[in-house]
Structure formats: structure tokens, C-alpha cells
Write a protein that binds this DNA or RNA. Sequence first.
DNA 1: AATTCGAGTGAACACCTGTTCACTAAACTT
DNA 2: AAGTTTAGTGAACAGGTGTTCACTCGAATT
Lengths: 210, 210
Amino acid sequence: MSTMAASARQQQKERTREALLNAALELSLDKGFAQVSLRQVSQAAGVVPSAFYRHFESMDDLGLALVERCFATLRAMIRDAQRDPEVFDHIIDASAEILVATVKGSKADFAFVSRERMTGSEPVREAIKHELDLFVSELAVVLARLPNIESWSSDDVHMLARLFVRNMQANAELVADLPEGRSDLEEQIRDHARREMLLIVLGFKEWRST
Amino acid sequence: MSTMAASARQQQKERTREALLNAALELSLDKGFAQVSLRQVSQAAGVVPSAFYRHFESMDDLGLALVERCFATLRAMIRDAQRDPEVFDHIIDASAEILVATVKGSKADFAFVSRERMTGSEPVREAIKHELDLFVSELAVVLARLPNIESWSSDDVHMLARLFVRNMQANAELVADLPEGRSDLEEQIRDHARREMLLIVLGFKEWRST
DNA sequence: AATTCGAGTGAACACCTGTTCACTAAACTT
DNA sequence: AAGTTTAGTGAACAGGTGTTCACTCGAATT
């Protein structure tokens, strides 16, 4: 992507590296990342355990790489949301829509983040916390440009962003462990998310007018 | 407590049972409950591994017992809050105060719940989810009796309760892994919690007036 | 064409895990 | 006082764990 090289050997290496990452992500779906052993990941990736060390120096190391990969998805989501012209007119509706759609499309990633945020090894937890804070700040920048919000104090915008992200987290959790093919429940979550965001915005208007 | 009996042998049994529970709770503080082995718990409780089975048939079983014990604390909190006359006049301030104080006093319990809510074995996760739903309903009942809220629809009250509990969860997490003796940060969290609850209430007023 | 490099192998290691089972000894029952 | 119950013991087990190390053999470099 960035460096085009790809010398057929590096290419193969990258392939098994991703196989390891995918295997770890999938295996951690039912029991949690911490329960997944180096040997299980290696086997699922079709590699002998000692080969693992050619790519990561420990499971913690792999965990950090996974965090990074997952947040790339999140960043893509916020980037797309900014480009969508809908967002300027109907932030709430569009946000709820984008949230549910994105989470549905990358369930494993979101499940991983919301799960390992509390349980992961200390470095993993720290990395997620940091990425999440970063995400709040990025969202604050986006929000600050919106029509009705551009006059707010930056403190208030930041708090709004925090509440939105917290709401996003909570709803992402719900979507992430949703049974397949229940579009009714999905619609219900979308609706709840919408109402809650609306509530927050309304609360802020009232708050700022006093 | 309930059955007074206590035949000196039952007494002793209860003693080591609690020792096992306490050991499990403490050991799960740094790495998470799922990382704690039956042998570690037994050793920390001063018992040989095979004795464990006299009290629980598996670690999952112990986990469920721990969930039950932790939520007893939560229930006590909401019960006390109801008795406090302050709450009727200044729900928000009193709630924020009680929240921080209670969580600070039972860090381990809250840390356990907020951690195992996502990571625990499936039965443990299910138990927590159930208890949490129950908690929302209980809170809704309390809120419905409050001066300005008694006229709301039960749906709205329930949503308010959900938002409050979510807020509580998020702030409990923050308090739970707070470094010791940082009363400034503690005050900051209390303040945030207060503002966020206020925001929610204001939003609801506005919401309902349209 | 000869040499170096390195991703992947397979066996061995020391250790920790949950579970079993025959046992002891002290508290209970008769 | 004799007999039963049971919380706790200690050794053994089969199996999974992370890490090591000498190795292969094809691709990359010279």
C-alpha cells in the first residue's frame, strides 16, 4: 500500500502475518483474546508454533497490532461520515445509520475493541484507551464545524464528543453480539441510538441557554 | 444471617468458601477473572486444589457466586440512595456523590462486574447482563416517584434509567481504576458525572415539551 | 552459478493446568 | 463411647502451554 515493493517473499510473509492476525481475531470471538494461546493461533493460521516468532515476539505484541488494525476501521468510518453530505443536515439520523452499518460490517473488530478495552493485557488496554481518546478529539473537530455547533466553546464540544463516543461504544456492543438476520432488533438499536443522540443535543441546547 | 444455625463445621466451611471468593476477586484484579486458575485461587485461599470442589464445582460456578455477591453491593447502594432525603431535592448532586463514594468503597466488586460483563464465560456474562437489566428496572421505579418525573410515560422513565445506568457504568469504570489518593481526579469525575446527568435530564425536558 | 538469507519445520524442554482418588482426622450423630 | 459424615490432604494423571534450537530448502543477492 505505502511501499509498493512486494518481493514475493515479503509478500508471502505478509500473507501469513495477516493469517495470524485473522486467526487471533476469530479465535478471540468466543472466549476473549486473553484465552487464545500462541499455539492455537499458529495452528489456525496453518503454521508451526515456532514460526509465530518470525512475525510477533509475543501474543501481547500481536494484540497491539490487532488494536491498530481495528482502529483503522473506526477512522475510515469517521472519514466517510465527514464526506457524506447528509451529515450536515441530519447529523443524528446519518450518524445512527452509519454507526449501525459500519459495526455490522466489522463485527469482529468492534467486538475485539469493546472486549479487550477492559480485559486485555495492560499494554493492549492502554493502547485502546489512547486510541479512544484520540477518536474523541477527532470527532470533536468534526462536530465543531457543524452549523449549529460552531459557536460552542471547545470544552462543550469536547464533552459532546465524549458523550457521543460513549453512546457509540454502548450501541456498538449491542450490534456486535446481535444474532444474524434480526433486522428488526437492528432497527430498534438504530432507533434507540438516534433518540439518545437527539436527547444529548437537546440537553446541550438547554444547558447552554441557561 | 438468614439461617442462624452455624454448627462450627458449617461455620468453618463458610469461612474457607469466602476465602476462595475473596482470593478469586483479588487475583482477578490485574489479569481478569478468566486468567485466574483454580489452583491459584486454592493456594491463595490456603487450601489444596482438590478441596476447591467441596465448595464449587468449577471456576464458572465460583464466578456466578461472585456476580451475585457484587450485585448485593449495588443493590445496597440504590436502597441507601432511596432513604437519603437529599435525593428528593437534589437528585443529580446526591447521585453523583453516592456513586463515587460507593464505587470507591467497593472498587474490586465494580471492577469485576465492569470487566467480566464483556469477557466472562458465557454464563457469567449472561448473569451480569440480567442483573444489570434488573438494576435498570429498579432504578426506573425509584425515578418514577420523583417530583418532576412522576408525570412521565413509563417508556421515557425507562430510557432515562438506561441512560443513567450507562453513565454510572462508565464513571464506575473510571473510579475503579483510579490511582490511590488522587482526590482531585475523583472530584473531576464527580463533576463530569453531575454535568452529564444534568444534561440528560435537561434533554428530556426539552424532548418531552416538543 | 555459487552464496547468503530467512520463513517455516519438528522435536524437545520445563512448567502449569483441571480432575481423580484413596486417605486422614476432627466434628457431628446415634 | 462407638460410629458416621465430611472438609481438607497429597500424590498421581493426561494434556496443554511458551520457548529453545538445530534444521531445511526455496527465494534473493552476489
